[in-house]
Write a protein that binds this DNA or RNA. Sequence first.
RNA 1: UGCCGGAUCGUCUAAUGGUAGGACAACGGCCUUUGACGCCGUCUGUAGAGGUUCGAAUCCUCUUCCGGCAACCA
Length: 559
Amino acid sequence: MENTEKKSRNFIQEIIDEHNKINRFDKKVHTRFPPEPNGYLHIGHAQSICINFGIAEEYGGKTNLRFDDTNPTKEDIEYVESIKEDVKWLGFHWDGDVRFASDYFDRLYDFAVQLIKKGVAYVDSSTLEEIKEERGTPTEAGKESKYRNRPIEESLDLFERMKNGEFKDGEHVLRAKIDMSSPNMNMRDPIMYRIRHAHHHRTGDKWCIYPMYDWAHGQSDSIEGITHSICTLEFENHRPLYDWFIDQLGIHHPQQIEFARLNLNYTIMSKRKLLRLVEEGYVNGWDDPRMPTISGLRRRGYTPKAIRNFADRVGVAKRDAVSDVSLLEFSIREDLNQRARRAMAVLNPLKVVITNYYENKVEELEAVNNPQDETMGKRLVPFSREIYVEQHDFQEVPHRRFYRLTKGSEVRLRYAYIIKCEEVIKDENGNVIELHCTYDPETKSGGSSTKKVKGTIHWVSAKHAVNAEVRLYDRLFNAEFPEADKEKDFTEFINHDSLTVLKNCKIEPSLVSAKAGENYQFERNGYFCIDSKDSTEEHLVFNRTVTLRDSWAKISGKK
RNA sequence: UGCCGGAUCGUCUAAUGGUAGGACAACGGCCUUUGACGCCGUCUGUAGAGGUUCGAAUCCUCUUCCGGCAACCA
């Protein structure tokens, strides 16, 4: 029932529908995507981007891109640029200019003064340890600070002097005066400002006090007129605090809605752990094609459309969930099947001599560029007496359902002729190094011959072949849930065979013009793309995006 | 044992008091000049116990299990 599938609403859409019904936000929908510029975006962020931009699009609303840059010691402009690029690459357009929480530092400061004057915020001169001590535990109420009831004037004065740089880091903080015995830890007089004599990537040295995320975030949303602040589950407990700030200030009140973040099996999503993979050299950078980062997926050959389709299929809900990576793979295969140009490439070459073919003859054979899309046209592929085929397409002792080359068997060369394997040449160690075959001139592709064989294999003309390096990627972790074992570090589950480099691949000549950003299907092998960093005209490097579905692997695994 | 949230096929997600459906995965078959694609079919699920009701995944009660919360991080 496609019909019901289209009509079904996720819980966020239901909430917005209800708001529109009761006219809560004048039927407006304005969302935002608010990353902290302290790392690269991953597939989980991609889902959040799709939700925020997708929801707004659906309701004819807008989405802001705002960097929550409230901690100058962790953040960097490099990350700002990469995040902007990733959002654009996914195909989304933010409303107006990129925003920064730091754009609102002056207003946040004024808001804070307002709350101090109102008697609901105070400067606390306790030490870090004292504050920690007095916060209590989830099951035990906290204690009020001895500075909690200091006169408003005194707090005002101290806060201004904090701003003016009269104190060292950690000497004072500004706290909201709420309830030290609240069962919600976030309401136990949370810290609003801390002193940090640090250089900020945008405001420079203007400030030496910086707002905490909890104090900056809700007000930033309010200032921007956000209607629906969509965020992940861990901020659910913070919502009462955000609501409290907004209500105390009497400003525009967005509705926060929390959803369960995306998890994927056989990988990790924590920025901190991803950083470790990079720093400890398990991968070659944030955009290593094995990384679940958007930049890694892009380099691997994933398309924005595949990622967006994946996000749609996974859906959104409030329960914790781990999605199956096979769904991501399905999404990229589905997209690439439609758009990727086909080509022939032999990854592990085995030489074949067609003994009854003319010594110097070359035929240009017509090959379809994409059987799913006629408009992609055809190309010519050179054929000659010596070709390369895949080592795996020959079996000396064939599996009973093996339809390819074995001594005496016939197989079709894709877009060319049917050949028969006559002789197997081995080296002194007994390794098969060459096959001698004969071809049937009557069976030229497109001809009138009705001869049928069960197997068809790809090939590349030896004298026309171009050498290339091909990198095959496998999952980065062997364990389905690398973080689940509390005893072991996640790095113990790293798959040490996640990268296989093949340096002696033979590709058809038309592939020399391949450019980064294009997707190809190497027939019977998988989807591949030029590596955007390491490939050069002299030394082509291809990345395998994903294999084709391989039912032969299942058959051969049995017997 | 505090507060907040959650529990539907193997996985993800619908059904909002009226036939538990879809996608992925798996399995079987058809098709095939890609063992691809496509097509057809099969399998598997409401955490448990009570209750309300003609009728409960849905409402009520109790239980069990899972996640989050004690950075001057976000």
